[in-house]
């Protein structure tokens, strides 16, 4: 699968852009938190597209955001 680029994203409609990002993010997130992958991906898709692209290129950034999202999600579910 070829890397997702900002120009590829820009060529797609806004809703499609999130879909493209989600399809790339999901497998990476699934490898970290298989049970929560769908919800974590949904949370991360609320982030700006440019930052999501950066996360796809930077595993460390993605990992940090995923851990952040898991903490938020667990706090939310504990309520």
């Amino acid at each position: 699968q070829e890397p997702l680029t900002s120009s590829m994203l820009a060529a797609a409609p806004p809703q499609e852009q999130k879909q493209l990002l989600g399809e790339r993010l999901y497998p990476l997130i699934h490898s970290m938190h298989s049970a929560l992958a769908g919800k974590i991906t949904g949370m991360l898709l609320e982030i700006d597209n440019s930052e999501l692209l950066h996360m796809l290129e930077s595993p460390e950034s993605l990992h940090a955001k995923v851990e952040e999202a898991v903490a938020v999600l667990q706090a939310h579910q504990a309520k």
């Binding site: 809703q15 999130k18 989600g22 497998p27 919800k39 991906t41 609320e46």
Partner: peptide
């Protein structure tokens, strides 16, 4: 008393068109 956040966050499923926050409104 506040039930508005029960469905948060929207869940992403591969291969399923993403509706994101739009699907909160019926």
């Amino acid at each position: 008393s506040n039930g508005s956040s029960i469905s948060w966050p929207p869940e992403f499923h591969p291969g399923v068109p993403w509706k994101g926050l739009q699907n909160i409104d019926p």
